[in-house]
Amino acid sequence: MTTHSTMNKDTLLWMYSTMVTIRRFEEQSRREADAGKLRGMHSSIGQEAVPTGISAHLRDNDFVLGTHRSHHHCIAKGVDINEMMAELLGKATGTNSGKGGTMHIADINKGMLGANGVVGSNIPVATGVGLSAKVRGTDQVSVVFFGDGASSQGVLHESMNLASIWKLPVLFVCENNRYAESTPFEFTVAGGSISNRAAGYDIPGVSVDGQSVLEMFEVGGEAVARARRGDGPTLIEAQTYRYHGHFGADDPLGYRSEEEQEYYMDRDCIKQLTAHIIENGFAGEDDLQSLDEKALAAIAEAVRFADESPFPDDADLMTDVYNTYA
């Protein structure tokens, strides 16, 4: 993956394609789940702009660590969607050879150091990835995504402190999608702000409109540059929204209102970027439509690839528990 760190037509179209691919992938994943080919998944629809704006600045050898809801992180980081879809279906050709599934997609070659199903668990690991870059003397950057729910875990605070005192190249990116499962943000987060907590650790804390990929791009660019310079970590709180339920089977209207959903969906990240591209003449509707079609074709190919792939062999149950064990 080449970086798209300069704001120009190419970057805009890359961001558009990436976000559309994520959305179509998630829609298809839902259909696969409804067909019983996988059992539940956490949809990232609505949150596409957050990893896209940041990953525009990342190289293949920079690292991203994700959460239970991580398909968008993976796609934005360049993970192959054929292998992702195969992983969702538990196939041997999947990113994780069928061992991990929807919550644990990883691809080290693309710097995707894994989605993690335990809330907050990825944060200290990402801090260690930043430490490694620093000790090895590279300018690699470590980006960890987590939700508003994870902001209440102690490890976030321990990790921000460590990253600050050691000046580690880490981006702590909170996707504040307003809900920890069914529990609203304001019910569990004291002070009403996550980014404010950075002040206690003497690092920059930025709140950004996570529905605007342009703003994500700008804030991400600054934070990545700061990390690469060796100036240390940044905490970014991206204000975003999860359109679907927590894992698919739950109805979000059980805990939030239609008005609220409409408010956020009106500010949809893809809609906003489309308007920006068209209004400023970076591309025409036909150009975007052909990117849409390309994304759909790629998803169809991913499904075909996954469907035609074999399940793992029985013997694979015991492989990769260790490297050596005797």
Partner: peptide, 16 residues
């Protein structure tokens, strides 16, 4: 179960 983490893939999980 065997001395292995729980696999995701359905046929492997059924073996586990």
């Amino acid at each position: 179960p065997p001395h292995a983490p729980v696999p995701y893939s359905r046929p492997l999980e059924a073996l586990w």
